[in-house]
Design a protein around this nucleic acid. Sequence first.
DNA 1: AACAAGACCTGCATGC
DNA 2: TGCATGCAGGTCTTGT
Length: 279
Amino acid sequence: MPELPEVETVRRGLAPLLEGRRLDGLAVRRRDLRRPVPPDLAERLIGRRLVRLDRRAKYLLWRFEEGTVMIHHLGMSGRMLVLADPEAPAAHDHVDWTFADAPLVRFRDPRRFGLVVLGTAAGLADHPCLADLGPEPLDDGFDGPALAARLGGSRAPIKTRLLDQSVVAGLGNIYVCEALYRAGISPWRPAADLDGPAAARLADAIRGVLTAAIAAGGSSLRDHARVDGTLGYFQKDWAVYGRAGAPCPDCDCDPDRTGGIQCQPLAGRSTFHCPRRQG
DNA sequence: AACAAGACCTGCATGC
DNA sequence: TGCATGCAGGTCTTGT
């Protein structure tokens, strides 16, 4: 589930509930996530107020008083539950946070690719999780030249470069497919071959698709809170992802004649594209 | 150095 | 119905 828009949606849902509240309790049921949950997590956090909930790339940054930061990644299958009326934890409910005057917040992550570690505000930029991240695509200054500079002279396919978090922070397989489609650029095109206009179109496409997805996701946080399960929201707006065989919504190519949206592997990931629009 | 491939872990859809 | 297979939104490590 979580690429940048989903993490941002979670952040926007949780922040108003939790910012300014004191953490009163913490339950860790499994410590063997992608990296071990630190043994002193409770000791470092309990009794402190959450000053601000931030996001960097696909990480949630829980900034507590006195400069302690909980760095939290949802991995592939992680989601946050908001439970006004807490139910018994299920099999993959690994961590609960209890803030004063707030609903219970629970981290559920069946595949355990997620991560909860600690950092400090002063050293955050140098933390191993964050040190190599590229620019935030929604920040001011992310444009064609900035993207082109990050791509450098790489001959690798543009899609694999965009999945590299040190090039642009926060994109995953879905939004890379969608952005390349919007920009009309083949996923296999060597990154170094993008000229100025193409890089500008791609930067615009990245910002556009992320912005649209966040706008669509914002209304569905209650689905997360309700433990609804499935994805819900922006997926109905995907132009190419998961739509192999469907007609391209833009060039309207006939799937019977051109094949419509195609899915082919690239760097081991399913890659959805319209060969005609993105030739 | 740059890139590809495999590993990590579980759930789910599909097909026999 | 039951079982085997393949695939999944992300990193990280290993090997070429």
